[in-house]
């Protein structure tokens, strides 16, 4: 029986995107406080991991076919508001494809600018407007992600949380269902499922 060697593709150390698990481990070490790091570095490591998570979401979430204008249309990861990722996200998605759609990072100043987008990271800078923004986007096929405490209550789909210095994520299944997005059960195994209280 032919056995597939999972690593028969040559590994390119220079290719930073392929090294994200290393960053994750390094970050985990840093986050666990094993090494004292300046606050700025700690935060940037955190977003490095979150950038990788955003990329992984693209892998484990299924968008309806009409979420794209055509089969070769770009897969957009949008950032609304202040960009906490710096260059990490751009590096993570560079030259990557999801189901044939090339990954593109798009930065939005305002919610009105969002036209064709699959994953939207709502920055903390938008915390005051988040409820309205998410309400506007709730019926579109956009996976809304953020790290604000009230993101899920506000109608967002995935919220990053930090627990014991590790990054986890919460998933609002109802919101995902409204957005017509299917989240892989494998990813849900890792997630904390939350249901926002009805007002």
């Amino acid at each position: 029986m032919a056995i597939l060697n999972p690593f028969d593709r040559p590994c390119r150390p220079c290719d930073l995107k392929r090294l994200f698990p290393v960053w994750v481990v390094v970050s985990a070490l840093l986050l666990s406080g094993a090494i004292e790091m300046p606050a700025q570095t700690k935060i940037s490591r955190e977003y490095q991991i979150k950038a990788a998570f955003l990329f992984n979401f693209a892998q484990f979430v299924t968008w309806p076919p009409d979420a794209f204008t055509n089969a070769a249309a770009p897969f957009r990861i949008g950032i609304l508001g202040e960009d906490p990722f710096g260059a990490f996200l751009d590096e993570t998605v560079r030259n990557e494809k999801v189901n044939g759609h090339p990954l593109v990072v798009q930065r939005y100043r305002s919610a009105k600018d969002i036209k064709d987008c699959q994953i939207l990271f709502v920055s903390r800078s938008e915390s005051r407007r988040v409820k309205r923004i998410l309400a506007d986007l709730k019926d579109r096929n956009i996976l809304t992600v953020g790290d604000m405490e009230d993101l899920v209550e506000s109608g967002g789909i995935i919220r990053f949380s930090t627990e014991k210095n590790k990054i986890h994520f919460q998933v609002n299944l109802e919101a995902a269902k409204n957005a017509n997005l299917t989240i892989s059960s494998k990813m849900l195994r890792l997630a904390e499922i939350v249901t926002p209280e009805k007002d």
Binding site: M1, V24, V25, F53, N56, F60, K186, M187, R189, L190
Partner: peptide
């Protein structure tokens, strides 16, 4: 092999998100 493939399929998310517990 089949069992390993099942484990492989089930562990893709854990690997992607580097979730040791899962």
């Amino acid at each position: 092999s089949t069992r390993a493939q099942i484990i492989a399929a089930n562990s893709s998310a854990a690997l992607a998100f580097q979730n040791e517990a899962d």
